[in-house]
């Protein structure tokens, strides 16, 4: 079977800075792929380049074999690839439920149906009892869940989650992992950026390590996180040795 998402030699430069340098990888249907790397490795830029927020200078992005390189974010979202933001961005004047209703309206015109679907998505991310809470009063953990619920409500084929554990309580991480696994089991492919290596290793099928805009390594989580190049990228190199 061909890859659901295929990134081929994508490069992006901002001025003289090469934020991404010929990054390539495939994502299979139903997989959970993690992307790790130190700050400035180009992880978020990679997500932006895939989801249309940044136009790649070269390379191509294929979603289910269709070329989506350089298309508008809204167009790519309608094709079933939805990205969440590193700093969650709720619709602050709306309640939790209405935030998700908006997302449901992306895939259906009927408002009553959209509300039902939105409520189910809120239940799935564990926010149903707070449906009437204004989003501006949400805690960081709730915002992360809300954002995932909103992405789900669009009925995506693949979601790109930018640091879904960022700022989330240590105690809440187990719940979030269980949620991601449920989502995957429901048929949604997941690619996520994460700093929390301990958490990531527990549930991703595969890891990609990035550093300075390049893919350093790709493979099984245990192997990738113990690789010297990856450790060096995170901790810095000894004796000025090149990573």
């Amino acid at each position: 079977m061909t890859a659901l998402l295929s990134v081929r030699g994508v490069s992006c430069a901002f001025g003289g800075l090469k934020a991404l340098n010929a990054v390539s990888f495939d994502v299979a249907r139903g997989e959970i792929l993690g992307i790790i790397g130190p700050n400035g490795a180009g992880k978020s830029t990679l997500f932006s380049a895939i989801s249309g927020y940044v136009r790649p200078d070269s390379g191509e992005v294929l979603l289910d074999e269709a070329d989506i390189t350089g298309r508008m974010p809204e167009d790519i979202a309608r094709r079933g690839l939805v990205k969440t933001f590193q700093t969650s961005r709720p619709f602050s004047s709306m309640t939790f439920l209405d935030n998700v209703v908006v997302a449901s309206l992306a895939s259906q015109k009927n408002l009553a149906g959209a509300r039902k679907h939105a409520f189910r998505c809120l239940e799935q991310v564990g926010l149903a009892q707070h449906w009437d809470t204004p989003a501006r009063g949400a805690s960081t953990g709730q915002r992360k869940r809300l954002e995932i619920g909103r992405a789900l409500a669009t009925r995506p084929r693949i979601v790109l989650l930018d640091e879904p554990f960022g700022g989330v309580d240590f105690a809440a991480i187990d719940g979030l992992i269980a949620l991601l696994l449920t989502i995957r089991d429901a048929g949604v492919t997941i690619v996520l950026i994460e700093h929390n290596l301990a958490a990531v290793q527990r549930f991703v099928g595969r890891l990609i390590a990035m550093n300075l805009g390049e893919k350093v390594l790709e493979g099984e989580p245990a192997k990738v996180t113990q690789d010297r190049r990856v450790v060096n990228a995170y901790l810095g190199t000894e004796d000025g040795e090149d990573a």
């Binding site: 989801s51 927020y53 508008m72 974010p73 809204e74 167009d75 979202a77 309608r78 939805v82 990205k83 969440t84 933001f85 961005r89 709720p90 619709f91 602050s92 004047s93 709306m94 209405d98 209703v101 908006v102 997302a103 309206l105 992306a106 408002l111 909103r150 992405a151 669009t154």
Partner: peptide, 18 residues
Amino acid sequence: YILRALRDDEEAARSLGF
């Protein structure tokens, strides 16, 4: 709903396909 979403956060609305 879509108009209010745009007002609150245009980028977030785009990310959902609007």
